[in-house]
Nucleic acid binder design. Sequence first.
DNA 1: TGGGTGACCATAG
DNA 2: ACTATGGCCACCC
Length: 114
Amino acid sequence: MNLEKHEDFFQMVFQVVRLIPKGRVTNYGSIAKYLGAARSSRMVGWAMNAAHSQKKKVPAHRVVNRNGELTGKHHFASPFLMQELLEKEGVKVVNDKIQNFDAVFWDPINELEM
DNA sequence: TGGGTGACCATAG
DNA sequence: ACTATGGCCACCC
C-alpha cells in the first residue's frame, strides 16, 4: 500500500489533540512520544501547521512547547488568539508563558490507555 | 546530493 | 536567563 505516511500521522496527532480536556495543555514532545516517537516532536509541530485547515476543529492552542511557552501563537489567525482561547478556559498566560504549568499539564502517556 | 529551515527536545556551560 | 550543539525528520530549494 502506498499510503501517504504523513497524512496518517497528521490524523493521529489531531486525534490526540482533540482529547486534551478543556483547561489543560500538553506539549509537542509528549504527543510524539505517545505516538511512538518514530517521528520527532518537530513533526508534531509540522502537523499542527495543517491543523487549521481541518474540517474537524483541532484545539491547537492547547499544545505548547516543553516550557509551557506559546511558541505557536504566530500561526494563529491573530497572534493574540492563542492566549485568549487559553485564558477563556481558565489557563493563565503571562508573557507568552503558561502559569502553573505543572498543574494544567496533561500527558497522553499518563492519561490515555496505550 | 547537500544545505537551510522549523508551532521541538535534551544537555552543557 | 542566555547561547551552543547534537539529534530528530520532512520539506524546499
